[in-house]
Simulated assay, not measured.
Amino acid sequence: MKQVLHIKNMVCNRCIKVVKEELEKLDIQIEAIELGKVDVSESLTQKQTEEVRSVLNDNGFELIDDKKSQLIDRIKTIIIEKIHYSKEDKEPVNFSDVIASDVNHDYSYISKLFSSVEGITIEKYIINQKIERVKELLVYGELTLNEISCQLGYSSVQHLSNQFKKVTGLTPSHFKKLKENKRKPLDEV
């Protein structure tokens, strides 16, 4: 019987690759894999579950068992996908509508749950993810601040700059001049 594994800290395509390789080493048949979720062909035994948990932990991931943690992880995955991996032109995203629709829960419930478990609001989490994406794009140096602002759906360069300074303590231009890398891994944002 098919089983769905929910995995915390799967935030990029390399994460998917690592999880896939590790599960295949354990001879676990994968039907589908995406950020935060793996569909396996058969229910895992207790021994297999512990082996999966161990190998995931060794690689910086975590098997999520309870429904609330799964919901929180799904919310984070939606936000990360929209901000870091969405290829479409960035119109301002109404994250509350997108998240509520995707997880099929009332946004006020989701918001309260997220804040109580994570100690941060969804809105603040979104801002932190956007700022990490801005840092990444500034380090690459391929886009102007105006292009970055448009790509991330900011209303203006000034709004982006103000938010960047509030979060980092630096202006985007000062950050870009710094030689040391001040970016954080996505699972630590």
Rank of each mutant, 00 (worst) to 15 (best):
R53P: 04
E81H: 12
D106C: 09
T77G: 13
E118Q: 12
P92K: 15
I72G: 05
S111H: 12
S86H: 00
D65T: 15
I79Q: 00
D89F: 09
Y109G: 00
K68Q: 13
I75G: 10
R74E: 14
I64L: 15
E118K: 13
I80V: 15
S86T: 01
K90N: 10
N104H: 09
H84I: 08
N94P: 06
V117I: 13
Y109W: 00
K68V: 15
S54N: 14
S96G: 08
F95Y: 06
S111A: 10
K76S: 04
Y109L: 01
K90C: 07
K124N: 08
G60P: 10
D65W: 14
K67L: 14
N104M: 09
S86I: 00
K87L: 01
D106Q: 13
N59I: 01
I64C: 11
S101F: 09
S86Q: 00
I99L: 03
S86N: 04
D66G: 11
D66W: 09
K67Q: 14
K90W: 05
H84W: 05
P92V: 07
N59Y: 02
V117L: 10
S115T: 07
D97F: 10
E81N: 14
N59S: 08
E62P: 07
D73L: 06
P92D: 12
S115K: 12
H84Q: 12
I80P: 06
D102K: 14
S108R: 05
L113P: 04
L56Q: 01
H84P: 06
K124I: 04
E62F: 10
K67G: 13
V93I: 14
F114T: 11
S115E: 08
E118C: 07
D65P: 09
E91V: 09
K67N: 10
K112A: 10
D65G: 12
D106P: 06
K87V: 00
S108H: 06
I78A: 04
K112L: 05
D89G: 08
F95H: 01
K87Y: 00
I122F: 01
S69G: 12
I72N: 02
K82T: 09
H84C: 11
V98W: 04
K68A: 13
K67D: 15
L63E: 09
K67F: 12
L56N: 02
E62L: 14
I80D: 03
K67S: 14
D97Y: 11
E88L: 11
E118I: 03
R53D: 15
D58H: 03
S116L: 00
H105C: 07
Q70F: 01
E91Y: 02
I120V: 11
D97H: 12
A100T: 08
I72A: 06
G60E: 06
I75E: 13
K67R: 13
D58Q: 05
E123N: 10
Q70N: 05
